[in-house]
């Protein structure tokens, strides 16, 4: 099975395909409205020399654009989540719950927090699916 280098377009395409293939996602996310950006702070020691910006469009159970993008595009998202590479890796590997990371300040979010709380099952679902994408992490290459 192919492994995808984390936070590349190929990895995002695989992630999008995994979400679309998940039978539980669409009904669970039927009320979700809004794009999500992930911002990964640089950590050259871990193989991340520059900030990585990712844009993902979610709408009523459908998934639209999933892009590695520039800063402006990321900041146009409804929700923008920022964190260090090691924290994103912990979240993807399910070593750190994303809500806990947010509450502890290990990840930061800009956006409507009550909306996220109300739709927390959807949020948890997409993170669960992320954990299923076979990922090659830069610090392990």
């Amino acid at each position: 099975m192919a492994k995808f280098k984390a936070m590349t377009q190929e990895w995002l395409d695989a992630y999008k395909a995994a979400i679309e293939a998940d039978p539980e996602y669409k009904p669970m996310a039927k009320d979700w409205e809004g794009s999500v950006a992930l911002v990964c702070n640089p950590d050259p020691s871990k193989g991340v020399p520059e900030t990585i910006y990712i844009f993902m469009d979610y709408w009523h159970g459908d998934v639209g654009e999933f892009l590695v993008c520039d800063k402006a595009k990321a900041e146009s998202a409804t929700f923008v989540m920022t964190g260090d590479y090691s924290r994103w890796k912990q979240v993807a590997l399910k070593e750190l719950d994303s809500t806990k990371a947010l509450l502890q300040g290990k990840l930061k979010m800009r956006g409507d927090l009550p909306y996220v709380v109300r739709n927390i099952k959807t949020v948890n679902k997409v993170i669960d699916i992320l954990g299923n994408v076979d990922t090659l992490w830069p610090d392990e290459m």
């Binding site: 509450l103 300040g105 930061k108 979010m109 927090l113 009550p114 709380v117 927390i120």
Partner: peptide, 23 residues
């Protein structure tokens, strides 16, 4: 000011736990 927990408590009160806790 920097805390998401503080933001959540301000916006939703302690009842912010209800949705999360049911899961």
């Amino acid at each position: 000011k920097d805390s998401a927990l503080a933001e959540g408590l301000h916006m939703m009160g302690s009842d912010a736990n209800m949705d999360l806790g049911m899961i």
